[in-house]
Design a binder for these strands. Sequence first.
DNA 1: TCAAAAGTGTTCCTGGTACACCCATGC
DNA 2: GCATGGGTGTACCAGGAACACTTTTGA
Lengths: 229, 229
Amino acid sequence: MPTYKYPRPALTVDCVIFGFDRQSTLKVMLIQRKLTPFQGSWALPGGFVRIDESIEAAALRELQEETGLEKLFLEQLYTFGAVDRDPRERIVTVAYYALINLEEYVVKAASDASDAAWFAIDALPPLAFDHDQILLIALNRLKNKVQYEPIGFELLPRKFTLFQLQKLYETILGHELDKRNFRKKILKMGLLRELNEVQQDVPHRAAKLYEFDEVAYEQLREKGFNFEI
Amino acid sequence: MPTYKYPRPALTVDCVIFGFDRQSTLKVMLIQRKLTPFQGSWALPGGFVRIDESIEAAALRELQEETGLEKLFLEQLYTFGAVDRDPRERIVTVAYYALINLEEYVVKAASDASDAAWFAIDALPPLAFDHDQILLIALNRLKNKVQYEPIGFELLPRKFTLFQLQKLYETILGHELDKRNFRKKILKMGLLRELNEVQQDVPHRAAKLYEFDEVAYEQLREKGFNFEI
DNA sequence: TCAAAAGTGTTCCTGGTACACCCATGC
DNA sequence: GCATGGGTGTACCAGGAACACTTTTGA
């Protein structure tokens, strides 16, 4: 017994998938459209929300179809509902953004050929629909959130160096950071577990590797600790 | 030519409308439901998104129907899409939150009788659907946002005293603030215009009135200023 | 004269910021 | 030996936090 008999907008999800590569560039995954409208253009991966799945489940499903990754950071971004955002008909889309570790992704991606590709954030092609707007908002969210929640680690391999972490912040925030101050601050928080390992195969002195300590973070957070870069 | 022939969720908007009264309590407007399900329960005001209006327009329309106010602060909160959040059928709702100045509202509200009522947020009735969850998230958003954007003023009359402003922050943040430090900080920002007026009809020494200076805020913001309490 | 809020400065301490050099490694 | 990052400590300064008393007004 449908309670509302008027025409309904269609409902989709779109995902802004961020990755951070070895060259310290922030990238986004895009899909080349095979159909009209915007045939041949690049667009955010996405699709319709099925009647029997939650919107978050729909986003996860899309994400898995595209990346093959099971566990990843996923957060709802914003819902876009301008009347004419899709030229075909009324479509409302709930945008999500995801953070993935490119090193793990690359392995899986090699297996199945796909129409997906990674683009550096500062060298994007024109995007279909209002996807440039969505991407901009996602980027802003990332910039803000990375400063007060420890989500940056989601973009790095499990074991990383302090230099990699610093470059990550510099890239996302768009400005340089002082090495000594950065290390002092991040180590003082007590969220990093220093490993008895160093980098391998680097053309310079090998750096110590660290892991993000989620348990320690949870414990500190319960005591009122706030992450802040 | 609909591009997607499968069943679609219905799409609604729900609004969390906050007000701040003369007794320094934070309140929310709720509507008593006339129909099943949850007949007689209190719920957030909301309604279906029409096929030819944007979601924000739908939220504004609902808001105006309920409050009669034209200009108010309105921001998208989050989209709720659990499969069973409505017992009748699949309904996805885009939640917004609004901040209104209760003094202005009360005048209008007196004119048309309504099933709406204001509840202090620490004395809420049980709510229909997942509206308690929505309200909780709205409250968190308000708590956070009020600290780094000057939106608190939306809840006050145009002319207010520093004491009122301080009480507003104390109420929303849930802890007391030091009077001298608060005044020092807020005045130093240069966002308040001191008026040549004082309170009227108060049973104690009358305080100076201030106005929020939006122009000054915009100018400062362009120079990189960040509001912060 | 009492109650309620208005109004006002100083001290201390923490935490941010600026800053430069030697070390280890691979090529 | 050169390039690349690894790794480390100090001094200064600004801004947050703690804190108490006198004044004004109306009831």
